[in-house]
C-alpha cells in the first residue's frame, strides 16, 4: 500500500516539475515572478481538452497544447512585457493582469462548469500496485516529467543556446558584457515557459479536472515548488517537486486537509531561512549595504 502512495507522490512530483520548471527559468532570466504562467497552464488545459473531445490522441493534444500556450506567451512577452523591460515591478503587475485576463477569457468561451476529460483505452485503465489499483495515466505523468527534465538538461547543458541562457540567468549585465543579446533570449525562455505551462495544463486535465479556476488553483503549488527549489534552478525544481509531491501524497494519505497547509508552511520557512531555495545560490535577501 505504501508503495502505491509513494508512486502516486512521484507522479505528482513529475507533474509539479513540468508545471514549475518554466516559471523557475523565467524568473531566473527575467527576474519576473510570472503569474501569467497560470494563464498559459489554463490555455493548455482547455486546448488539450478540446482536441481530445475532437478525436485527437492524448500525446498530440498535449504537444499542441504546449505549442498554443507557447505562442500565447510569446505574444504576451512581445506586446506587454517587452515595453516594461526595465521595470520589474510593472512586469510583475502585468503578468498578474495576464493571468486574470486569460482566466476570464477561458471562462467566457467555455463557461464556468467543470468539463469531463474524455479518457479511454489504456490511459483510463489501472494497474495493481501494492495491493491497490494505480492509474496507468499516472505512469504517463512520471514518464513525461522525466522526458521534460532530460530535454531541459540537454538544452541547458548541451547546447550553446543553453549556455547563453545559463549565463543570462546568472547575470544579465555580465552576459551583455560578453556580447550576448539578452533580449531575444528572454523572449525565447519566456515562450519556453509558456510551452511547459501549457503542456502541464494538458497533463492536469485527466486527474485534476478541466475548469477555469484550475490555473489559480495550481499557482500556489508552483510557487511552493520554485521557492523551495530555488528560483532559476532546474535541478532544484526537480528536487523540490519530489519533496512536495511525496509530502502531499504522504501527508494527504493520513490527513487530506493538511497537505497543502503543510506545504505552504514549508514554503514560508524556506523563504525566511533560505530564500535562495534548497539548491539555489542567488539570495533574495534585502541587501543593506550595497549601493
Amino acid at each position: 500500500m505504501i508503495a502505491n502512495v509513494v508512486l502516486a507522490g512521484i507522479s505528482l512530483a513529475a507533474f509539479y516539475f513540468v508545471l514549475s520548471a518554466g516559471l523557475s527559468l523565467v524568473f531566473g532570466i527575467m527576474g519576473v515572478l510570472n503569474f501569467a504562467s497560470a494563464g498559459y497552464f489554463l490555455v493548455g488545459l482547455y486546448a488539450a481538452w478540446y482536441m481530445l473531445g475532437h478525436g485527437s490522441g492524448f500525446l498530440v493534444a498535449a504537444l499542441a497544447a504546449g505549442l498554443i500556450s507557447g505562442v500565447t506567451a510569446l505574444i504576451v512577452e512581445f506586446v506587454m512585457l517587452r515595453p516594461l523591460y526595465r521595470n520589474p515591478g510593472g512586469q510583475l503587475l502585468t503578468t498578474l493582469g495576464v493571468m486574470l485576463i486569460l482566466t476570464e477569457a477561458v471562462n467566457w468561451v467555455f463557461g464556468p462548469q467543470i468539463q469531463q476529460e474524455p479518457m479511454q483505452g489504456l490511459l483510463a485503465s489501472t494497474l495493481p500496485v501494492g495491493g491497490l489499483p494505480f492509474p496507468v495515466y499516472r505512469l504517463l505523468l512520471i514518464a513525461s516529467g522525466l522526458v521534460i527534465y532530460l530535454l531541459l538538461v540537454a538544452l541547458l547543458r548541451g547546447t550553446s543556446l543553453g549556455l547563453k541562457v545559463r549565463a543570462g540567468v546568472e547575470s544579465q549585465t555580465l552576459a551583455e558584457l560578453s556580447g550576448i543579446r539578452v533580449l531575444p533570449l528572454r523572449s525565447l525562455v519566456y515562450a519556453l515557459g509558456g510551452i511547459l505551462a501549457g503542456f502541464a495544463g494538458a497533463l492536469y486535465g485527466p486527474f485534476g479536472g478541466v475548469y477555469p479556476g484550475a490555473g489559480t488553483d495550481t499557482l500556489l503549488l508552483t510557487f511552493i515548488v520554485v521557492v523551495i527549489g530555488g528560483l532559476g534552478s532546474v535541478g532544484g525544481t526537480l528536487v523540490a517537486s519530489l519533496i512536495i509531491g511525496l509530502a502531499e501524497a504522504l501527508v494527504g494519505f493520513y490527513a487530506p486537509n493538511l497537505a497543502l497547509t503543510v506545504n505552504v508552511l514549508a514554503m514560508i520557512i524556506v523563504l525566511i531561512l533560505r530564500p535562495q531555495g534548497l539548491l539555489g545560490r542567488a539570495p533574495g535577501r534585502r541587501d543593506t549595504h550595497a549601493a
Binding site: 524568473f27 527576474g31 519576473v32 515572478l33 520589474p88 515591478g89 510583475l92 500556489l220 510557487f223 511552493i224 521557492v227 528560483l231 497547509t261 505552504v264 508552511l265 514554503m267 514560508i268 523563504l271 525566511i272 530564500p275 533574495g284 535577501r285 534585502r286 541587501d287
Partner: peptide, 18 residues
C-alpha cells in the same frame, strides 16, 4: 521585509494563503 521584490511578493502571498 528581509526579502526583496518578487521574494517579498511571494512571502506575503504565502503567509496570506496559509
Amino acid at each position: 521585509l528581509r526579502l526583496r521584490g518578487a521574494y517579498f511578493a511571494m512571502i506575503t502571498f504565502a503567509i496570506a494563503e496559509f
